[in-house]
Design a protein around this nucleic acid. Structure first.
Length: 195
DNA sequence: TAGGCGATGACCT
DNA sequence: GGTCATCGCCTAC
């Protein structure tokens, strides 16, 4: 990819180590996944629907979706508009408001697991579908902050839980960070070329 | 209008 | 490490 603008992959790497502020809780992003939008069969934006329409909109807004009917995952729309690219926040380390995060996640959850996993990130930050479309550059609600960790040790690997294009190494995490979730390949992922 | 599926997470073994 | 719960959204008829 030799485009002039930053690609979604570069955006994903750039989000590592940055603060992500939710409702009374802030995390340091330690694990992300890039989704290429219209060119990526694993992306919700591969087919345009009312749910994914927001990814075609303004960059640096929040895309929230429900997974398995229960869990809620937070994505950063990176643009450009027609590309519908987004970055999924998979894991983070709670840096502010850890008491609030503990209350949301339960008293038995270890601190390193408070925001480990996409659903847990959203839960710790108190993100719900009401936050869909939030301007992440606006410091009022859910928003991105400065980079506080020098993520020089960045590891890459295949994305987790996707059934298509599972071999594209578009998952990035801060190597050695205990809050990073362990790799699990989707059981539905095609081991070889499809029929 | 009905059926199938999913960018997970928790729990059991 | 493997299996299962669970429900809204998408697609087809």
């Amino acid at each position: 990819m030799s485009m002039g603008e930053p690609t979604v992959v570069e955006h994903a790497r750039g989000l590592l180590g940055r603060m992500f502020h939710g409702h009374g809780v802030a995390i340091v992003i330690t694990e992300v996944e890039a989704y290429g939008g219209i060119d990526d069969p694993a992306s919700h934006a591969f087919t345009r629907t009312p749910r994914s329409a927001i990814m075609y909109g303004e960059p640096w807004h929040l895309y929230v979706y429900r997974s398995m009917g229960i869990h809620v995952c937070a994505n950063v729309v990176t643009g450009p508009r027609e590309q519908a690219s987004a970055v999924l926040i998979r894991a983070g380390r709670v840096a502010e408001g850890i008491e609030v995060a503990r209350a949301r996640r339960g008293p038995l959850v270890k601190d390193t697991n408070l925001a480990r996993g996409p659903g847990n990130v959203a839960q710790s930050l108190g993100i719900s579908l009401d936050d869909l479309g939030t301007d992440l550059q606006d410091t009022d609600g859910v928003h991105l902050g400065a980079r506080v960790v020098d993520a020089r040790e960045v590891a890459t690997g295949p994305r987790v839980g996707v059934s298509k294009a599972a071999d594209i190494p578009w998952r990035f995490w801060i190597d050695g960070d205990p809050t990073v979730s362990v790799y699990r390949r989707s059981p539905r992922a095609m081991p070889t070329a499809e029929n």
